[in-house]
Design a protein around this nucleic acid. Structure first.
Lengths: 215, 215
DNA sequence: CCGGCCCCTAAGCGCTTGCTCACCCTCGCG
DNA sequence: CGCGAGGGTGAGCAAGCGCTTAGGGGCCGG
């Protein structure tokens, strides 16, 4: 109690783990700028300006612009992975767990699509070591989805001729939500999550379509 | 006969429509560089260097770096749209046309994934008027897919509760191939096309799964 | 009241960027 | 052979980049 985290607004606030306050303001500004223009097109002056600071202030809290991207990418991937693995390790049939995983993963990508866009599409801008670290996290993401699908096939729930390929496609579908979401509007994250969960169950040939529509 | 296009190697060569030769070499170099590093991280010196020319040579054939991106984007979208509309307007049932469209669209994104990456992911780097022009092309892409799905539903071939949403998901799935293809290897464009055609037929609830597997 | 500490800023350094300009080399034609 | 035109180059400009540094202002314990 009385920790910096609580001072910052509790542990469920989006960037609550980033302290002190000035560092978080800079990071949030960087997420917005990176999502809007891309990493390379964003200047450190722009980030500092959005955070209401001078350009030099950035370097008090972060060594380089790349370190900012890495922090964003790391925290974002941790969160996305946590969401997925929680669903993968939950109770229920493979179909229920897969639907749950897709629903929450997609919802996160839609709700926090500016963060997700940076996390998913600016990976190449990281330095070699930082990129390697993030790639390792992504392999765990892949493994979590593959595990659910594999278990569904083993249990006879799913009909999937190509498990690695279908895993890839499912993840690709979910991740790409970050690219297009809210460029049109008119759909809530919950709606997209529900739609995608249904589509993915169809992709793995899970059970009776009529059951899916009702449940 | 004896036109510049034929001199350049015939009309089926990837960038055969770009003349003169030096302009094409620069454009191909730009595609590679943009795909590898992204538009903003690519310098005009890098593009010219890859084409074996001095930095100044670029400006003989293109007014700005952005014009280069626009030319690439325009030609690429034209080609992608042509592929899709050809399949959409072809003969056969809605299921056959949808499978055909997805198969060829995906194959193009895989085979020419460096071009596709630029075309699909560097749109924001275009100036306002050029972007508007490209966005109009993408609406036609969307319309082509939506038409096939709509016709399949009308004919009772498909079971799709949300036609616009499913259209969006199908296109998103195909487009994202450009992002991940060949970062791992081990899959040919034909294989990915076949896999994705099957997955999409499942998404729209087309017919008997057993029939799909045999056909 | 003050001295040290922590954030922060103004100014600017060294470098790279997109792009330009004066000039040259090559080639077809009379 | 002279010549004009068009594709190419070397050098470099103004602007903007990531990042640094010297110094200032507010807060806090003594």
């Amino acid at each position: 109690m009385g920790t910096a985290e609580e001072t910052a607004g509790g542990e469920n606030v989006p960037w609550g783990e980033v302290t002190p306050d000035a560092a978080r303001r800079l990071l949030v500004a960087a997420v917005d700028a990176f999502a809007e223009r891309g990493y390379h097109a964003t200047t450190t002056r722009d980030i500092a300006g959005r955070a209401g600071m001078s350009p030099a202030a950035l370097y008090i809290h972060y060594k380089t612009k790349e370190e900012l991207l890495h922090r964003i990418s790391r925290i974002g991937h941790d969160k996305a992975l946590e969401i997925l693995e929680e669903a993968a390790d939950g109770p229920g049939t493979a179909a229920e767990r897969l639907a749950d995983a897709v629903r929450s993963f997609v919802r996160w990508h839609a709700e926090r699509h500016t963060t997700a866009r940076v996390v998913q599409y600016e990976l190449d801008a990281l330095g070699p070591e930082h990129r390697a670290e993030i790639v390792a996290l992504r392999r765990r993401t892949d493994a979590a989805v593959r595990r659910i699908i594999g278990e569904g096939v083993a249990a006879g729930e799913f009909d999937v001729p190509d498990v690695p390929g279908t895993t890839l496609a499912v993840l690709s579908l979910c991740i790409d939500v970050a690219r297009w979401f809210n460029t049109q509007g008119s759909r809530t994250p919950d709606e997209v999550g529900a739609l995608y969960a249904d589509l993915v169950l169809r992709m793995v040939g899970a059970g009776d379509p009529a059951l899916r529509a009702r449940g």
